[in-house]
Design a protein around this nucleic acid. Structure first.
Lengths: 201, 201
DNA sequence: ACCAGTTGTGTCACCGTTGACAGAACTTGC
DNA sequence: GCAAGTTCTGTCAACGGTGACACAACTGGT
């Protein structure tokens, strides 16, 4: 589901669906928009909608998924012997500066926070966190794959711990922070520093 | 959804639903069982099923939820000035020894691993992990609630980091370990020790 | 035994999501 | 331009899950 398109028709359909969906989302709200409406607007069937997007809400998280792809690439390009925390910080803080991309991201983010249950956002973020952790774990074990349970565990603990700290920062930022990029950077830095320096209470 | 029952009739209905569901699950498989069948067996409507159980699969995770309740209680009973990691270890390793409860738990676990997608289990575990982290965070901040974003973040990082390490151990155990309680204990211990002693790579 | 208020259930209508099959549209090689 | 094969779409049927409303069953107090 939601693979990259192959034919011309397919990309047109997908674009039409996305346009129709976002338009409806902005005018009448996400929950009040049915997939039936979106499909009708785009001139296709409901079933076809689901051949292009896994769920109705996934449309609103496209930037997260893109961000994850980008993060994997950034991570892979770091030198192999660099300490992991440093790689992560470098990767996170070197986010792409493309103006259009950032504009679209913030628009998406605005749509999310004002239209979706906080619950749904948090649940989706848990999925992204898991993917993030998996990317870290893959990166950690890329030299020699672990064989014993203990080796698996060691990598998993490091990866998931880092992911947990980072996403704790993100959620804190979503709820308690002024929502600027600078503040997000500061909170991530803070969380990672706590992880590195301070043994848990 | 899924609140504690109030009347006699309600508890009977719930018990009938649970019995019918587990019976069908064991004979014909979970996915091949429809809620309609379960409800019919119990002599009620589909809608009523959903008044007692949030989802069809939640039936199979009842022990997790119970375990979380128990964990919150165990945590609350630890002395307030004890280091958190120690409280967690003590709470985890003092699991109830009730023979019936353990038998039912292992039966549930068996049903889960042989009938459910690994994906679904992992996703549910993520939810439990989040609840676990929230319990820890509540316990951490029970004296004075945090006010600034930084204070929130500090507690969140500690709580979620601990939860991540513990659940990394659980998942490693599910996949790579001999599935004995002793091995689970060992892996949890290992994960928490790594968290405490070793700064991430 | 009656009454009032709460809780449980049935009914209905709807939305989100998926599998299976068949047919249309496209791509590729000639 | 045509044929063969792949990809995309429509159709159909089904299941999981939820909100709203009305009614039955139970609760407590008198």
């Amino acid at each position: 589901m939601a693979r990259e398109p192959q034919t011309v028709r397919s990309t047109r359909t997908r674009a039409a669906l996305r346009r129709a969906a976002l338009s409806r989302f902005m005018t009448q709200g996400v929950e009040a928009t049915s997939v039936e409406q979106i499909a009708a607007d785009a001139g296709v069937t409901v079933r076809t909608f689901y051949r292009h997007f896994a769920t109705k809400h996934d449309l609103l998280f496209a930037d997260y998924d893109a961000g994850l792809h980008w993060f994997r690439a950034a991570l892979a390009s770091r030198p192999a012997d660099e300490p992991l925390v440093q790689s992560v910080q470098a990767a996170i803080f070197a986010f792409p500066q493309d103006v259009d991309a950032i504009a679209q991201m913030t628009q998406m983010a605005a749509l999310r926070v004002e239209q979706l249950d906080h619950d749904r956002i948090v649940r989706h973020l848990r999925g992204v966190e898991a993917d993030f952790a998996r990317a870290l774990s893959d990166h950690l074990t890329r030299r020699e794959p672990p064989v014993t349970a203990d080796e698996h565990l060691a990598a998993a603990v490091t990866a998931r711990t880092l992911a947990a700290a980072t996403f704790a920062a993100m959620e804190t930022w979503m709820v308690h922070g002024e929502r600027t990029m600078a503040e997000l950077s500061r909170l991530c830095q803070l969380a990672l520093d706590q992880l590195r320096h301070e043994a848990p209470v």
